[in-house]
Design a protein around this nucleic acid. Structure first.
Lengths: 355, 355
DNA sequence: AAATCCACCGATAGCGCTACCATAACTTTT
DNA sequence: AAAAGTTATGGTAGCGCTATCGGTGGATTT
């Protein structure tokens, strides 16, 4: 077996004798400064000069030393990522996305857990602030707390939120349209023929829960269906809360023929409860989730759910934050953005027409 | 409310106010050079001096500038973390642990997913190698593949495994005693009075699965109980495989009174299946897991399981790898280590005496 | 007591690059 | 044709850190 692995291995560190900008300068006949301008696509370089320098660069196979670059430019950034306690499935994707993007942009990412309560928040924020981050990425529910926001503002730390709410248009957010996504899912359930549809609401601290509820309600209303209050029960995004909520729903005298859980963990719990009561999913009960985490496909039946591009969202958040920091440093007052990413209704095996 | 947050914040623009080694030097009353020695754990620094400098570092919340460090020719390290597709709960802990440790050691950590199959492996390894890592952390099943190991060896990349198998004593590993842990859990189940105990084996590609199986078998044998072959069914560590395996076990003419699943996901699935068959857990069926991921406490009843210190393991792996790289660079041929961490049997609500 | 040693610390000199300002080489204006 | 722009380029001075070597003072040796 010849397992040829082609690796253009840049040595970890520039080894001694590496070709530097000075080498290119002498080779091309210009000064290091001019070479630097060519590398950085600076204007103000005569076309002929640029060409000559580029030739020299190619000939010597020169590649700028990143460390030196950021040292000299002082454009090194450090950003923080504050997370609370989402489901593990959500967290791992969220982390992976931001990690990758930060690395690609050569930005240091500091990940800090934010425990609930003022003390936990204070500790987390202090840690972030004192490590000198230029900006932070917040997700729900932290990004909805005026207190937390005020603190970061006080320390001149830029913030990008992955959430639903925008306290001011000075703060960027990246999000999906939770409301419309939930409405679409609800309309799908209705189109299957369901009239008695239960909703398991997500953690009340999260704006997303409210959005999804609104989407659900508006779709139901749009179809002319009145939802009895007991058909909407509170959950907390955890599997366990899903267990209780589903039990409450299925214990109803006239139980729903479909349950829309505000995330996959609670949907999985709903399926477990249904099975315990000898209800087949989807024959006797349709169960739909939200998020499309790994969990959705690892259970049986596979979950019909809303695919949320979690990794892309955290990637986008990192990008936005970097842009903002750059603008801020340059004195520009870049207007913050509101980036809406696409969700997708994913039809799998947990939904069907009412028995 | 005056929410005074004490933060030794560097001035607004990290650029302008970043605390440098010189600041620490003046604050501590020593020269920058001595501070540098302290940071790098150089010998030849008086203990009292080291202490003073460390105090100053802490007080100023100093963190060395990575760029400057590597520019100046310091031992800048970059390590890789290759993961396949463990459960999300496992992964997030694993990541968080290594991330934190790498950051504390000022080492760049590159996280890469390794898809199954030769192509996926090749891509992942190429990515790692071409980014110039000095070493990698591998977990099962990658760390058991001679091909993968050979590749890293070929590119002079050090490896630390989080696993069970040590191909040579040149490679360090960090692990728990999976075998003994499984045996302990099994003995606990037996002590409850169970005689018909089923085992859901983990993913066959993972050495850990085999270890846990051996532990189970030896404990059963030690108690003089013969395990019929049909009492040990194959799973793959996924919730879904747990569903199937549990069904197979509970469909047996003489079904087990206890089921030991090789991880929490499969244990959760087992509980779901049991509930579906109107079996109360633990009254009618004892179910035990392994890992103690978040999942274990988020389901009902809470899982009796083996606590595995996942974050500590990945932290230890990072430490070991850093040591190895340092030794390797210094020309020392540091002997690799085999670090055994403690597991713990965690008794919760899913176990009890046979009905 | 002098000579020697050694643990500890500091001064100096860059690492490779880019900001910043000065200068040179052209253009355009008056 | 001289003055005043308008480019294009070069020189200088660090960015924050560490390698290297040289120096100090106290302990050990002769």
């Amino acid at each position: 077996m010849t397992w040829e692995l082609q690796v253009n291995a840049r040595s970890p560190r520039p080894k001694a004798g590496a070709v530097t900008i000075a080498d290119v300068a002498t080779a091309s006949g210009f000064s290091p400064m001019t070479v630097s301008r060519v590398i950085n696509n600076d204007t103000k370089v005569r076309e002929s000069t640029r060409l000559l320098v580029q030739q020299a660069i190619a000939a010597l196979n020169y590649s700028p030393n990143l460390a030196a670059r950021s040292l000299a430019g002082a454009d090194q950034m450090r950003i923080g990522l504050l997370y609370s306690n989402p489901s593990a499935a959500y967290l791992s994707r969220y982390l992976l996305g931001s990690l990758e993007q930060a690395r690609a942009a050569h930005v240091e990412l500091i990940v800090v857990k934010c425990d609930a309560g003022e003390q936990g928040e204070e500790d987390a924020i202090r840690e972030l602030l004192s490590s000198g981050v230029d900006g932070v990425i917040l997700s729900e529910p932290m990004c909805d707390s005026p207190r937390i926001l005020a603190l970061f503002a006080q320390f001149d730390t830029l913030v990008v939120a992955v959430g639903n709410w925008r306290p001011s248009n000075r703060m960027s957010i990246v999000r999906i349209d939770d409301r419309e996504a939930a409405a679409e899912m609800t309309r799908h359930i209705i189109s299957l023929g369901h009239r008695r549809v239960g909703l398991i609401i997500g953690n009340a601290l999260h704006k997303a829960s409210e959005m999804r509820r609104q989407g659900f309600e508006s779709a139901m209303q749009g179809a002319g269906i009145t939802v009895p209050p007991e058909y909407m029960v509170q959950g907390h995004f955890t599997y366990r809360s899903g267990l209780e909520a589903a039990a409450a729903l299925l214990d109803l005298p006239e139980r729903p023929s479909a349950i829309f859980a505000s995330n996959d963990d609670m949907a999985a719990a709903t399926i477990a409860v249904a099975h315990r009561r000898q209800l087949d999913v989807p024959r006797d009960l349709t169960v739909c989730g939200f998020d499309d985490t790994d969990f959705a496909q690892s259970i049986w039946p596979e979950l019909t759910t809303i695919h949320q591009p979690i990794a892309e969202m955290s990637r986008a958040a990192v990008d936005m934050l970097i842009d903002q920091i750059r603008a801020h440093r340059a004195g520009r007052d870049e207007s913050a953005r509101d980036q809406l990413l696409d969700y997708k209704l994913v039809l799998r095996d947990s939904d069907g027409p009412p028995g």
